[in-house]
Amino acid sequence: MKNIFVLFSFLFFTISLQAGGGWTQPKGKGYVKISEWWLIANQHYTDQGRIDPNLTNGLFNTTVYAEYGLSDRLTAIVYFPFFSRSYVNNEISGTTGELLTAGEAINSIGDTDISLKYGLTKNSGISVAATLTLGLPIGNSSGGSQGNLQTGDGEFNQLIQIDAGTGFPLGSTNAYANVYVGFNNRNNGFSDEFRYGIEAGVTLFKDRLTAIARFIGVKSFKNGTPSAESTNTSVFANNAEFFSFSPEIAWNVKENWGFSAGVGTALSGKIIYANPSYNVGVFFKW
């Protein structure tokens, strides 16, 4: 699986909270989050699900995520990494101290997602929404001398996702839970995917702090081009799978803005980085 796919896999399971699960934005209401997401990886899950080391690869994304209620049922969502950086470290001989291979880095915009979410239920105890996400391949899919530095995967994917969420009191606090399943149709030789997830959150300190626990899974249909036959020359090429845990907190400084921070780590996986990713951001809502 390509680096960028790992990137967006992690991004996906850290971004999905703001999409609101089964809930849509009321008409005219919106949410914007500017965040930094990063992953520095020196080990990965192999195709056998075991962990092997690799040359350190850093991935950094500075992003804007926004959602806006076009109507009470229809929400437009955009995820735009306006600055994306990928690098690999220098290789230094432990015997002589000499530089064996110089590290490399690329900077560009990243692949961008645009989505439309439609609320299937109204005034129901369980909110259900369907989302169509289009992954636009506008990043760099083959940077660096080996083509293994990427800020985009070069493939146009279409993700259809169904979310179901409900809110409920938990003692003196408010809580929510959400589950989803999705099918990600990918082209350009990439395998299609089944995606699933469950998350739960609770608000504390008079609703100023929201603590979220999130589990996300991706299963590959393995119906794409075998990695070895792919022109994509990264160890993270195709047919990746993972099951991840991503806790996150959001602190509402004021009613209309706040900070968030989260971490995502793959508890198991195949052909995916094994190091945790992190994100911090500031959000605004109106």
Binding site: I40, Y87, E91, I92, G103
Partner: peptide
């Protein structure tokens, strides 16, 4: 401090290869 940590983390570092 967080911003500076991120900036330095985004720089190319060194991996030592045990090549003896």
């Amino acid at each position: 401090i967080t911003l500076l940590t991120l900036l330095f983390s985004a720089c190319i570092g060194d991996d030592i290869i045990m090549d003896r």
